[in-house]
Simulated assay, not measured.
Amino acid sequence: MKVRKLIVLVAAFTLLCGSVAYADSVTQKLRVLVNKKWEEGSDGVIVDNKSYISSQVVSDKLQAIVISDDKKISVFKPNVHMLTNSGNDIFAEVKKGKSIKFNTFIQVDSLKVDISALKLTIADTYGEETMIEQRKSGDSDFPDGKSDFWITMKDISYTFDQAGPYTLRLLMKPAGESSFQVVSEKTIVSR
């Protein structure tokens, strides 16, 4: 009786280990690079010679709006341009320590999804974000239902204390979703 149990146990472990080895050879890890840059957590997998990456990688790295439900994943990539100006001067570089009053002109086209809010932030060289402005559906200056629109965000005064890159981020919240997603970034360099 003990011999029979031992044989069954050995056979079960053999099948289990063989299944794990087979599954590992079918599924291979894939390193995902966007613009020749890899970041922690952006790995994908290859299963049956097909590549799979996280929809979060698509959203974050390609600055696209990704909406997922039980049956599908929809990716929307609007065309967004941002222009910073101070008075009549367009700029993308500032002197370190200088305080500038500026606004951001935003042009959006080919937005194929309804949004319920948008916001503009600026992150300093350490990544600390400051809200510039937020608009939501129902506001008089919100582009409800439009796929193409231009917006001039309010003037702000901002001091560029440190040398290095500052990042303006335009984020949009798809209608019916709870979180904002980055759709465009612009760098202002402080020297």
Rank of each mutant, 00 (worst) to 15 (best):
M1T: 15
K2M: 06
R4K: 15
R4I: 13
R4G: 09
L6E: 10
L6S: 05
L6P: 09
L9S: 09
L9I: 13
V10K: 02
F13L: 14
F13D: 10
L15I: 09
G18A: 03
S19N: 01
A21F: 14
A21K: 07
Y22P: 00
Y22W: 12
S25F: 08
S25G: 00
T27H: 02
T27C: 06
K29R: 04
V32H: 06
V34I: 12
W38I: 00
W38K: 10
W38D: 04
E40C: 00
G41Y: 05
G44K: 02
D48W: 00
N49Y: 09
I53N: 02
S54Y: 01
S55A: 07
Q56Y: 14
D60L: 00
L62C: 06
L62A: 07
A64P: 02
I67N: 08
D69G: 05
D69M: 04
D69Y: 00
I73P: 07
V75E: 02
V80N: 07
H81K: 15
S86A: 14
S86R: 12
N88T: 14
D89A: 13
A92Y: 15
V94I: 12
V94P: 15
K95A: 11
K96M: 08
G97S: 12
G97P: 06
S99R: 14
S99P: 10
I106C: 11
V108R: 04
V108K: 09
S110K: 05
D114A: 13
I115Q: 00
S116K: 08
A117L: 01
A117N: 10
L118K: 09
T121W: 00
T125W: 07
T125Y: 11
T125E: 07
T130M: 11
E133G: 11
E133F: 07
Q134G: 04
R135Q: 14
K136A: 13
S137A: 13
S137C: 00
D139M: 12
D139W: 04
D141E: 12
D141C: 12
G145K: 11
S147H: 14
S147V: 01
D148S: 15
F149W: 15
F149E: 09
W150S: 13
I151R: 10
T152L: 13
T152N: 15
M153K: 09
K154Y: 02
D155I: 02
D155H: 15
S157N: 15
Y158G: 12
T159G: 06
T159E: 10
D161N: 14
Q162S: 09
Q162A: 03
A163Q: 13
A163C: 06
G164L: 03
G164C: 03
R169W: 00
L170P: 13
P174G: 06
S178V: 01
S178W: 09
S179P: 00
F180A: 01
F180K: 05
Q181C: 03
V182L: 05
V183Y: 04
E185C: 03
T187C: 08
T187G: 05
V189D: 14
